[in-house]
Amino acid sequence: KGCNCRRSGCLKNYCECYEAQIMCSSICKCIGCKNY
């Protein structure tokens, strides 16, 4: 399942991608994603 966080840059544990240690991709559609 994808993540669509808006404010944290996908760097907080409530973002599913970050919590699962998945990098930003087409699945993880965080706005302004900084989780490289």
Score class of each variant (00 low, 15 high):
27 I>S: 12
8 S>E: 10
14 Y>K: 11
29 K>V: 12
17 C>E: 03
20 A>I: 01
24 C>H: 15
35 N>Y: 01
6 R>L: 14
19 E>A: 09
7 R>Y: 12
2 G>S: 07
15 C>A: 04
35 N>E: 13
36 Y>P: 15
3 C>S: 01
31 I>R: 13
20 A>C: 03
15 C>Y: 01
7 R>G: 15
6 R>N: 04
17 C>V: 03
20 A>H: 00
6 R>A: 15
31 I>T: 14
28 C>P: 07
11 L>W: 04
18 Y>G: 12
16 E>Y: 02
23 M>H: 07
29 K>P: 09
28 C>D: 06
6 R>D: 14
22 I>G: 15
3 C>K: 09
21 Q>K: 10
36 Y>M: 15
33 C>H: 09
20 A>L: 07
7 R>C: 04
23 M>W: 06
8 S>M: 05
36 Y>C: 10
22 I>P: 11
22 I>R: 12
18 Y>C: 09
10 C>W: 03
12 K>Y: 00
22 I>C: 02
28 C>Q: 02
28 C>F: 10
28 C>H: 12
27 I>M: 11
4 N>W: 05
16 E>N: 00
21 Q>V: 03
25 S>N: 15
34 K>W: 12
24 C>P: 07
30 C>G: 06
13 N>F: 01
33 C>P: 11
9 G>P: 07
13 N>P: 06
18 Y>D: 09
31 I>K: 09
30 C>Q: 07
11 L>G: 10
16 E>V: 05
27 I>N: 12
19 E>T: 05
28 C>Y: 00
12 K>F: 11
13 N>W: 00
15 C>Q: 06
21 Q>C: 07
10 C>T: 06
10 C>S: 07
1 K>C: 00
30 C>W: 02
2 G>A: 08
27 I>G: 15
30 C>E: 07
2 G>K: 02
36 Y>W: 12
29 K>S: 12
18 Y>R: 08
12 K>L: 05
4 N>G: 09
20 A>M: 05
16 E>T: 04
27 I>E: 14
3 C>R: 02
5 C>K: 05
14 Y>V: 10
33 C>E: 13
25 S>H: 06
29 K>D: 14
19 E>F: 05
6 R>K: 14
22 I>W: 04
26 S>R: 07
7 R>D: 14
5 C>L: 03
5 C>A: 04
17 C>D: 14
21 Q>W: 02
3 C>F: 02
35 N>Q: 13
5 C>I: 00
12 K>Q: 10
13 N>C: 02
36 Y>A: 14
9 G>K: 00
33 C>N: 15
34 K>T: 13
33 C>S: 09
34 K>V: 14
19 E>W: 03
1 K>S: 04
31 I>D: 15
17 C>F: 15
16 E>K: 02
13 N>H: 00
13 N>Q: 10
14 Y>E: 12
28 C>N: 05
13 N>Y: 02
7 R>A: 15
27 I>T: 14
3 C>D: 06
27 I>C: 00
31 I>L: 11
22 I>L: 10
9 G>L: 01
4 N>E: 10
23 M>D: 14
2 G>P: 13
24 C>E: 12
20 A>Q: 09
22 I>Q: 15
23 M>A: 08
32 G>P: 10
6 R>P: 13
17 C>M: 02
16 E>M: 07
34 K>N: 13
3 C>A: 05
1 K>W: 00
9 G>Y: 00
12 K>E: 12
19 E>G: 11
18 Y>L: 04
18 Y>K: 14
22 I>F: 09
10 C>R: 02
12 K>H: 07
24 C>G: 12
30 C>S: 04
30 C>L: 00
11 L>T: 10
5 C>W: 02
20 A>P: 06
36 Y>V: 15
23 M>E: 13
13 N>G: 11
3 C>Y: 10
4 N>V: 00
5 C>Y: 00
14 Y>W: 11
3 C>H: 04
4 N>A: 08
7 R>W: 06
26 S>D: 09
20 A>Y: 04
10 C>F: 11
36 Y>L: 11
12 K>C: 01
11 L>E: 12
8 S>H: 03
21 Q>M: 02
35 N>K: 03
2 G>E: 12
16 E>I: 06
10 C>P: 01
15 C>S: 01
29 K>Y: 10
7 R>S: 08
4 N>S: 09
29 K>M: 11
12 K>A: 11
15 C>W: 00
14 Y>L: 11
24 C>D: 09
12 K>M: 05
9 G>D: 13
15 C>N: 01
2 G>D: 00
33 C>A: 11
25 S>Q: 08
35 N>H: 00
9 G>E: 12
35 N>D: 14
23 M>S: 10
26 S>W: 00
4 N>M: 11
33 C>V: 10
4 N>R: 08
